[in-house]
């Protein structure tokens, strides 16, 4: 008998919890999901962050001696250009075309 009562209580509680979103007055919206345009901007922001992180990593590797002066000078230029391009891409309106040629990375 106890098992039956507890089992029924579990079933009722489950149904209530599952039905809860339909019982609320406020319609939950999708404001917390990203639109396609926001997703595109997210990817550009990530590219910017990756380029800046790569620069920081290079600086740290240089300071800790993993990279010599010569290699550092050869690598830092392309990384800075990549970071600058990522920043420009982020500022560019969605409809404007990308530049004719990307600088080498």
């Amino acid at each position: 008998m106890i098992a039956l009562v507890v089992g029924a209580a579990i079933a009722v509680a489950a149904v209530l919890l599952v039905a809860l979103p339909f019982l609320r007055a406020r319609v939950p919206d999708w404001e917390q999901t990203t639109t396609a345009d926001e997703e595109r901007r997210l990817v550009l922001i990530e590219e910017r962050d990756q380029a800046l992180a790569a620069l920081k990593e290079l600086e740290f590797d240089h300071r800790t001696g993993k990279i010599g002066d010569e290699d550092y000078r050869a690598l830092v230029g392309p990384l800075r250009r990549a970071a600058a391009e990522a920043l420009r891409a982020l500022d560019r309106p969605q409809d404007s075309p990308p530049p004719a040629a990307n600088p080498p990375v």
Binding site: G68, D71, L75
Partner: peptide, 11 residues
């Protein structure tokens, strides 16, 4: 101990 992106044998 190896650098990201590119390392030379000497380094």
């Amino acid at each position: 101990l190896i650098a990201w992106r590119r390392a030379t044998a000497r380094s």
